[in-house]
Nucleic acid binder design. Structure first.
Length: 280
DNA sequence: CACCATGTTCCTTG
DNA sequence: CCAAGGAACATGGT
């Protein structure tokens, strides 16, 4: 389910459920999920610790733990298809369970489930350390953003997905923000003017904030994913796919602004959706 | 059967 | 040094 807004919604969901609870045991069903690192090292880092906080950086969840006054952090990433949720320990095991963490007396567990296995659960923080600023970080002002874009000739869409200029944007919200700002996805970053850069930064913030607000209002089922927060299967009470995205996955449909057909192109091997007229 | 999918990382080539 | 492309990871939906 994962770009910044979805991870933030999950963070807000997990935070009150985990804060203050103790890790009774760590079961790694899929060793590859602990990457880099080993299941044994993860388990020994977590076992006996207490959750103090659940944070987020970009698309990463940061689990702050405390053991005997000593602070530790564990990093989670959902990849393309990861989910996390609490369930009773007598619930049947999920088919693609990667990690399960028994809490307190062991009657409940935190489950990390991930069919495609692109997600991670690890004590290694190198990926988090390499991230650019959060979209709302005060260090990321319009001038600095414009300057960062000036430093590369790569397509603007590819720069967004790279996470080093700004963290948290994925393939869906990249298309959405570029549409809102009126910039084509294949546009070389160093040709984006200062004014356009300012518009783009505003658009990124607006698009991500709207997605967080939309997810906050919805009734979500984190275990099943059968709601609008997840790209697949937008049944249920959550926001519907068509209400959430203006251009993403809408090839051939009329542009919401000018009615000309939405185009699909490929940048860095990933689909982009855009209006050739509004994003000249 | 084909093709597509919310992500990241590594490798090769120019 | 940078940029671009492909591959890898692995599973499911249409």
């Amino acid at each position: 389910m994962p770009e910044l807004p979805e991870v933030e919604i999950l963070r807000r969901h997990l935070q009150p459920l985990l804060a203050g609870r103790r890790v009774a045991d760590v079961l790694v069903s899929r060793p590859r999920a602990v990457r880099p690192g080993t299941p044994e090292a993860l388990a020994s880092a977590m076992r006996g610790a207490r959750f103090a906080d659940v944070g987020r950086r970009g698309k990463f969840l940061l689990f702050a733990l405390v053991t005997r006054g000593k602070a530790r952090k564990v990093v989670g990433h959902l990849g393309m298809t990861g989910r996390m949720y609490l369930e009773p320990s007598d619930a049947p095991r999920a088919k693609h369970e990667a990690v399960s963490i028994a809490l307190d007396d062991g009657h409940e567990r935190l489950v990390f489930e991930d069919p495609r296995g692109f997600g991670r659960f690890t004590t290694d923080r190198s990926s988090v350390d390499a991230l650019g600023p959060e979209p709302w970080d005060e260090s990321l002002d319009a001038g600095g953003f414009a300057g960062a874009l000036r430093g590369t000739r790569r397509a603007i869409k590819i720069v967004f997905l790279d996470q080093s200029v700004v963290a948290g944007i994925g393939n869906i919200y990249a298309s959405e923000a570029l549409f809102l700002a009126g910039i084509a996805p294949g546009r070389a970053a160093n040709t984006v003017t200062a004014n356009q850069a300012k518009r783009l930064l505003d658009a990124i913030r607006v698009v991500l904030e709207a997605a967080i607000a939309s997810g906050s209002k919805a009734t979500l089922d984190f275990a099943s994913g059968s709601d609008g927060l997840f790209y697949h299967g937008s049944a249920g009470e959550g926001p519907k796919h068509d209400e959430r995205f203006r251009v993403y996955d809408r090839e051939g449909e009329p542009c919401p602004r000018c009615r000309s057909p939405i185009r699909r192109s490929v940048d860095g091997g990933r689909s982009s959706f855009w209006c050739a007229k509004c994003q000249a």
